[in-house]
Amino acid sequence: MKKQAYNPYLPSWEYIPDGEPYVFGDRIYVYGSHDRFRGNAYCLNDYVCWSAPVDDLGDWRYEGVIYPKVSDPLNKDGSMCLYAPDVTVGPDGRYYLYYVLDKVSIISVAVCEEPAGRYEFYGYVHYADGTRLGERKGDEPQFDPGVLTEGDTTYLYTGFCGVGDRSRSGPMVTVLGPDMLTIVEEPIFIAPSEPFSEGSSFIEHEFFEAPSIRKRGDTYYFIYSSIVMHELCYATSKSPTKGFVYGGVVSSNCDMHIHSYKPARKPMYYGSNNHGSIIEIKGQWYIFYHRHTDGTNFSRQGCAELIKFREDGSIIQPEMTSCGLNGGPLAGKGEYPAYLACNLFCKDEEIYTPLEVCGWTAGSLK
C-alpha cells in the first residue's frame, strides 16, 4: 500500500526551503537550502537531497549530504551559509549545482555524475577574460541562481531587488556556454525592480528574489518571489531571454488572494519569504514552495500543491492544503500530527510571521 503524502512532504524534523524539484529517471529529486530547527539565521546546514518515486509521492528517501558548505574554496572555515541552489543537467550528462554563499555576490558551481551523489566544487561563473560574474565594474550582485539547459546553452537567472533600492535593476539572465561556467551572452534584465516598474505589467508584484525557470510546451515560465514576499508569482515568454509578461500568483504561503472559503485578503497562516518552482510529474503539474514554522523565519519546510492551467496557459492559484502531493484528501480516520495543519486560527491575525507567534487555538487539515 502506498504511503499518504502530506504537507510538509518531508519528515517533521527536516527543514528544506527554496525547493527546486526535478524528475530524473523514475524519481523526483528536491534541491534546496537547509534550515535548522530553531536556528537564528537562514540556511545554516549543508546541502542535502531528498527523492521519491514518481508513482509514490509519499515515500521520500533521504539521499544524504550532497555538498558540505566547506567544499567551496572561499568557505574553507564554514563561516558562510549556502543559500538557495539550483541544479541542471549539462550537455555532458553530468549534474551541475549552482549556488551562492551568503557574504559574496558571485555564482559558484559544483558537479556530480549522478543526481544525488557527492558534488565536487567545479568553479565560478565568469566572463571570457576570467573575471567572475558579479565582480566586474557595473555588475549587479548575484543571488539565488536558477538554471535551465537547452542543448549546449545554459540560461542562468539571478537577482535580488529590495523595495526602493535603485541600485538593483531587476532579475537578469546570463547565457553560459557548454563548459557551464563561461559567459557567452552578458546579463540582460528580464523584468523591472520596484523603483523601475511604472508602466510595466509587474506593478504591485515586482521581483524581489527567488528566480526559477521552467518550460511548458513552447512557453517559458519565470517563477519568482515578489516584493510582498509570501507570494510566488510567474511571468511568461516564448523566449528565455526577453519578452516576459507578468502572469499572476502561483502560490501564497498565507493563502492570500484565495477567496473560495474566506475573504481574499484574509491570511490563513503566518506568511513570509517564499521560494520554489513548478514541475510536471506523470502528467500533473505541482508548485513546490515553503512555509514558516515554530514562529520564526528561520525554520522553513517544503510543501507542494497540485496546480491547473487554463487554456491560455495561465495558472489557477491553489489553496494551501495538508495533502498537496496525495492526489486527494487524507483518509478520514486515525490521528494526524498537528504540524500538518495548513491553517492557523490565531488570536492575533497577521499576514507575516511576527517575532513571536503565540496563542494559536486550532489547526486545519484539508
Rank of each mutant, 00 (worst) to 15 (best):
C112Q: 07
E135L: 13
K76I: 09
A110P: 05
L101K: 09
R136Q: 03
R132Y: 11
D77G: 11
L101Q: 10
P115T: 03
E113V: 00
N75L: 09
A84I: 00
Y124M: 07
N75W: 05
L97A: 04
G146N: 01
Q142Y: 04
Y127N: 04
E135Y: 13
S108V: 02
Y127G: 03
L82W: 08
F143T: 05
L97E: 01
P145S: 08
G138W: 01
Q142I: 00
L82I: 05
A84G: 12
P145H: 05
D77M: 14
L74V: 07
V89P: 10
Q142R: 13
Y95T: 09
K103D: 01
Y122I: 01
G93S: 08
G90H: 02
D102G: 09
P145T: 12
V89L: 14
G138E: 04
G78N: 09
G138S: 05
V104L: 09
A110I: 03
T131D: 12
P73W: 07
Y124R: 12
L74K: 14
P145M: 10
F121R: 08
S105F: 09
Q142K: 11
P85Q: 11
E120F: 05
P73G: 06
P73H: 06
S108Q: 13
G93R: 05
D129A: 07
D144M: 02
Y124D: 03
G134N: 08
D129G: 04
E120H: 12
A128E: 15
E135D: 14
E135Q: 14
R118D: 09
F121V: 01
F143C: 06
F143Q: 03
G123E: 11
Y98C: 06
V109I: 10
D144E: 03
G93C: 07
R136I: 00
R94F: 11
P115Y: 13
P91M: 04
V100Q: 06
D92E: 15
E140L: 10
D144R: 00
K76A: 14
E120C: 11
D129L: 08
C112M: 11
P91S: 10
Y99I: 00
V111S: 04
H126D: 02
F121H: 15
I107H: 03
K76N: 12
E135R: 13
L101T: 06
